[in-house]
Amino acid sequence: MKTILWATLTANGNYAQSSPEHPPKEEALGDFATQAKAVGNFIVGRRTFEGMQASGGNPFGEVDIVVVSQSVKDIPGVKVAGSPQEALNYLQEKGHTTALLSGGADLHNAFLGQGLVDEVIFNVAPVMEGKGLNLLLDTGDYQYQDVQLLDCPRVAQ
C-alpha cells in the first residue's frame, strides 16, 4: 500500500501547529479535503481528530477515517487503530491501495520512523512560527533520506 504523508509547513520550515487562535489556512484545508476524497481515506492522530470535531465535524464526505490512538479504543463513526501498521492493514483490508496520513507530528514521526511513508505532500503556509515541531526520520541516531520533488503548485496567495 502506498502511504502519502500530508503536512503543512511554515515559511520558516517548522511543522505548522494550529490552534483556535491560529487555525489552518482555508487553502490548505481545501487541498487536504481534495487529497482525502481522491484516495477515499485518511489516517489521523487522536488529538488532531478531536480538534477537527471541535471545529465543525467532517467536511470530507464519505471517506474512511482511521484514528491512531493507544489511549482511546472506540470513537463512534471511525476506526480506531492502536498502531500505524494496524491503520494501514485496516485500509488495505477495505480495498484501498493508497493511504493519506495527516495530523499530528507524533503520528507522522511514528510512520516515518517505521519506514511506512512513500510520498510526502507539503503545503507551505505564508506564516512564520517562533516555536515549532519537526518531522523526524528517527528518534535515535541521525538519518538522511533523499527525496524527489514531484510538483510545486500554488494553492494560496
Rank of each mutant, 00 (worst) to 15 (best):
S83C: 01
N134M: 04
S102T: 07
S71M: 01
K73F: 01
L100T: 05
A54N: 05
G56N: 06
Q157W: 05
G132W: 06
V68R: 07
D31E: 08
W6V: 14
N14C: 13
M1I: 04
S69P: 01
F42R: 07
E62D: 15
I43M: 05
G51C: 01
W6C: 11
A125V: 04
M52L: 15
Q70H: 12
P76Y: 03
Q157A: 12
L116W: 01
Q35R: 14
P84A: 11
Q53E: 10
S18K: 11
S71G: 04
L9I: 08
E26N: 14
G82V: 12
Q157K: 12
G40M: 03
A125Q: 11
S55L: 14
G104T: 08
V66W: 12
D64Q: 14
A16G: 04
L149D: 07
N12M: 09
V67L: 06
Y144V: 13
Q114M: 11
P20I: 06
Q143Y: 00
T3G: 01
Y144C: 03
Q92Y: 08
V63F: 05
D146E: 12
Q17G: 10
E26G: 13
Y15A: 13
F60C: 03
V72T: 15
G45Q: 01
W6K: 09
G115I: 09
P126A: 11
S102Y: 14
G61E: 04
L29P: 03
D118L: 03
K73S: 15
G45L: 03
D138Y: 01
N89V: 11
E21Y: 02
G113I: 06
N41Q: 06
A81G: 02
A28E: 15
K25T: 00
V155G: 00
V66P: 10
D151W: 04
G104N: 05
E129S: 10
L88I: 15
R46Q: 06
K131S: 12
T97I: 00
F42D: 07
V80H: 10
K37F: 03
V72I: 12
L91S: 11
A87G: 08
M128I: 15
Q35W: 10
V63Y: 05
V67P: 07
P24G: 02
V39H: 06
K131I: 08
P153Y: 03
V44I: 15
Q157P: 12
F60L: 13
L150A: 08
E93W: 00
A125K: 00
K79I: 14
E93P: 03
G77M: 06
A110Y: 02
D138P: 00
R46F: 06
S71I: 08
L5V: 01
G45A: 06
V120L: 15
L101S: 08
Q17M: 13
Q148I: 07
N134E: 02
H96K: 10
G77H: 00
Q148Y: 01
A99E: 11
R47K: 15
L136D: 02
A7Y: 05
D141T: 07
Q85L: 12
N58I: 03
V127R: 09
S83T: 13
A156C: 08
L91C: 07
